[in-house]
Structure formats: structure tokens, C-alpha cells
Amino acid sequence: MLIELAVGLKVPDNVEITALRTLRALSINVASLKRWEYYSFEIDENMEEQLRETLLSVDVIVNANKNYALWIDNEQADMDKNHPRYMGRLPSFLVLVEEQDPADEHLLRIISERLLIGGVKHVERGTLWRISTPEKEGEGIVRQALEQLLFNRHYQKYKILGKIRGGGE
């Protein structure tokens, strides 16, 4: 089965700040931007519970002193402002930007060979963006942001994972 993790920074995220500033300078009307490191793990289904715990303690993925980590499919986490699927005031789009081959063999080796954690068969890595836009033409703005800044089609690809409607806080 596949489990997906979003890892964010507790301290200000300079990449996020510069990206937003640049989009504004390009007159791309993005209201706000949030960024996470994205990891997906193809795991042994019957090890789900313990892996969800163990993987959060892997230093290379999450350093609790500077990172927070959220399982993306965690329903209750919708109430957390830091969660990718949090409903804000404006609509937002959740976009995953990855390299064309997103497999992270290096991390898989660290997990299985260095740390001897079993049950993980495949790891992929990417950047998750939550882009919030004005009510109208949101998707167009998101695609503009991607094409002009957030991804380079010659070595990356992107997937709009979903739209989260606005109306929240």
C-alpha cells in the first residue's frame, strides 16, 4: 500500500518566501503559497501502523527540532493549518512537483540498509505546493505559476492532486 508524508519547516521557509515574491513580481495572482517535502512509501500493508510511527523518527526525513510531519491521508489533520488539505478562506490547489523519475533509491537504501527498517519497498520524493488563488480562474493561475516558475518540464513533471474549496479560516 502507499502512504504519503508531507514534511514542513517549523522555521520560516525561505524557498516558499522567495517563490511567492517572484510570482508577485511576475504579476501571477497567487494569494499564498505553502511548501512541503513530499515522500511516498510503498509499504507492506501489515506493517502500516508501526511504519507510520517508525518513519517519523527517521532523522533524514524528519528532524523534530526543525520539521513537523503529517501523513497526507490523515483525516483529522484537516483541522491543522499546516496540513496540506487544510481549508483556508480562499480556494487552494494541491500540486505535486517531482522529477520525471521520482524514485529515491538513496533514501530507500538508508531506510533498509543503514537503519534496518523492513517493509518499505519503494520511496518517491517530490515537492508539494499548496497554492491558494482568488475565487475565479484559480486553475489557470496555478498552471501559470507552475509553467513560469515552479517546475521545468525538461526534467520535472507535476500533478494537481486536488482542489480544496475556500470558505474556511
Binding site: 517549523k10 527540532n65 526543525k66 513537523y68
Partner: peptide
């Protein structure tokens, strides 16, 4: 006591 207090992290900005 590995605190999750972000006050403990000094953020570098070489840029």
C-alpha cells in the same frame, strides 16, 4: 529533552 521548540534552531541564510 529533544525539544521541538523552534527557538532552538538558528536559521542560516547564506544568500
Amino acid at each position: 529533552k529533544r525539544e521541538s521548540d523552534k527557538g532552538a534552531v538558528q536559521v542560516p541564510d547564506p544568500f
